[in-house]
Structures are given as C-alpha cells and as structure tokens.
C-alpha cells in the first residue's frame, strides 16, 4: 500500500464524522477598512465580500465566476483564513473554523484545505528547489517520519501530477509555466487535503497547456475524491470543470445554480449579460447570439450603489431596485438568485 493510499484511508475514517456538506459558509463578510489622514482614521470600508452564503458538497466542484474586483479571490482567501473574516461563519467538515486561533489553523484547516494560485512564478520561492518546496508542508505538519519516506511520497506526488521525479533538485525557473502550475498543484496535493481552492489556476497558461492542467485537475479529483472551489473569470473553463456555479458581482453572490441551468437559462440579468459577452467561436455560420452590452464600468467596491448593487448597469432595473436590496434566495429548487424580478 503506497503512502498516498495510507493517507487516503486515514482520511476516509475521519470523513465518517463529516457532514455531507464539506463546507458551509454563512453570511460571510470580508470588509477592508479605508484609512485616511495622518491619524489613519477609518473612514469607510471596501466590502470585498458582503453577506455571502453557500455550501459545498463533498466531491463536487463549485465554480465562482465574476469580473475583476467582484471579490472572488478575497472569498477564496477568507475561506482558507488568509484573511480574518469580518463577520459570518465558515463551517468546514462540521467544525467552525471562523475564529480558530493561529496555532489551530494548521491541523484543523490548512491540513485539509489547500490553495492553488494563479501565477506560479509568484507563488513558488525562486530560491528553493522543487524538493524543498514540497518537503516544507510535510515537515510543518509532521507527516511521515523519515526523510526517505517523505522523499518517496514527494516522488509519488510528482508522478501523479505528471512531472518526472528526477527534476526534484531543479529550481522553479527551470520549469515552463505549465510545469510550474503542476508544481503548485503538487504542493497543494502533498498534504492530501479535502478541499482545494483553485484561484485562477489556469488563467496564466496557454490554451494547449491550460487543457492539460484542466484534465489533470479532473483526474486528481476522481483519484483522490477531492472537492474543488474553482475561482476564475473564464466562463468557458468554469462551465467545463464545475458542477455548480456561483456568480459574484461587487462582493455579493448574484446567482448560484447547477451548471446546466445556469448556462442554458441564466436567471439573473447580470449572469445573462456576462454570458452573452463571451466571444464565441462560430462554426459554419452558426447564429450569433444576442449580445447584451452593459453600459459603463464596475462601480467602486468602496462606494457600492444602494439597493441592488447591479441596478446601475441593469437593463431591467425597476424603481424598487435602487432602494431595496434583493434577498439571495432559492427561487427554483437548487437555484438561488438575488433579484427583485423573481419575487
């Protein structure tokens, strides 16, 4: 029995006490203070994530899409407690991890929740060899006892992500972008986590390499029964990889549905315009879809519009939308929308 398999079976035992929902996020808020003047008085706040609730089931992939500044990356970082959430609750495997102390973060949270970042150049230490990059998490979490065992485990993980174990002494600059992203994935995988948060994990890659990494993520999910939160601005990739998709705008979830309904019949006006804006390859005179071009730019998250945050750009805005904030609720079984049109 290989080491990965031993780790896996240990985890399966631990899972028995887990709830069906691996992650339960309740009214999560992540506000950043704006400080001005010599006294650095707090004069306002950027509501990067504002009142976001969702659950992630074990083994599924939840896609989070949105444009830059919508708070999708902040959401990912707050979930893994790289930020201290302002308010709300994060239940991970039944444990409340929102207020965990720093020293408990490792064993309870980080051991089981890992992150893959967008830019593998920036997220890998250029002065460390691949071997020591992958050794560090094992050392920090005290997994496996001897150096030999750890090295064997590293070699195995490297093969799993499609890298040859002979490269173990190479430095990050000796790898191509796609290979570096494989290292990033190997680093996330080496602790055998439950949940991987992939923040724009394939966005910096060329399409042919992107396809390799997307396929790799899918294979790994099947092999290790992983759960993913896949954060991306690329609607096509999210559609490909996710089971359910959440759409964010100015710190709020606008719509959360299973993938098929969301892409075939988007309910929220923002989702509709977002989907219609994606340039599509048209084959053989396929009919061009009607494009809803949104006016203007994203409002500043420091000063979001009152009422529904989307009402300033919404083609269907009603008087009510400017004054009253729509509730994010289930309008059809399995489909959550925050819009007055569905009241």
């Amino acid at each position: 029995m290989s080491k990965a398999n031993i780790l896996l079976s240990q985890r399966e035992k631990a899972n028995e006490r887990f709830h069906e929902n691996l992650l339960d996020v309740q009214k999560l808020k992540m506000h950043f203070p704006i400080k001005t003047g010599i006294l650095q008085r707090t004069t306002g706040s950027v509501k990067a994530v504002d009142d976001v609730s969702f659950t992630v089931k074990k083994g599924e992939t939840l896609g989070i899409v949105g444009e830059s500044g919508c708070g999708k990356s902040t959401l990912g970082r707050a979930l893994i407690r790289l930020y201290e959430p302002t308010d709300g609750k994060i239940l991970f495997g039944g444990n409340d991890v929102t207020k965990l102390k720093e020293r408990d973060l490792g064993p309870v949270l980080r051991r089981n929740m890992q992150m893959v970042f967008q830019d593998p150049n920036a997220s890998l230490n250029p002065r460390k060899s691949l071997g020591s990059i992958l050794m560090e998490p094992l050392r920090v979490h005290g997994i496996l006892n001897s150096r030999e065992e750890r090295m064997d485990h590293i070699a195995e993980i490297l093969q799993t992500v499609g890298l040859h174990p002979t490269v173990i002494n190479n430095y990050p600059h000796e790898f191509s972008g796609g290979q570096r992203q494989r290292i990033g994935i190997a680093r996330a995988l080496i602790l055998n986590p439950e949940l991987i948060i992939a923040d724009e994990a394939v966005s910096a890659l060329d399409v042919s390499i992107q396809a390799q990494i997307v396929n790799l993520l899918e294979d790994l999910q099947e092999k290790f029964n992983l759960t993913y939160i896949f954060i991306s601005h690329d609607l096509s990739v999210v559609r490909h990889i996710s089971d359910r998709v959440g759409v964010m705008y100015l710190g709020k979830l606008m719509e959360l549905s299973d993938k098929e309904s969301l892409y075939d019949e988007p309910l929220h006006p923002y989702t509709q315009s977002l989907l219609s804006a994606v340039p599509v390859i048209r084959k053989g005179g396929a009919v061009k879809r009607d494009r809803i071009i949104l006016k203007g730019d994203l409002p500043s998250p420091a000063n979001p519009p009152g009422g529904c945050v989307f009402h300033t750009r919404c083609p269907y805005a009603m008087p009510q939308c400017g004054s009253e904030e729509p509730v994010f609720r289930e309008v059809v079984p399995g489909r959550h929308v925050a819009c007055h049109l569905f009241n």
Partner: peptide, 24 residues
C-alpha cells in the same frame, strides 16, 4: 486543430478536453 479542441466550449456538450501533449 489541437488549439481549437483545447478550448472548453461555452455551450453544447461537455467532453474531455483534447490537450496537445508536451510543451512549446
């Protein structure tokens, strides 16, 4: 052909992506 098939579609059936092996 490989390039076109590497891109996930925004509509239609979802199949496994055909990647081009190796690197540039």
């Amino acid at each position: 052909e490989g390039l076109i098939h590497s891109i996930p579609a925004i509509e239609g059936e979802i199949t496994r992506l055909q990647s081009i092996k190796g690197n540039v």
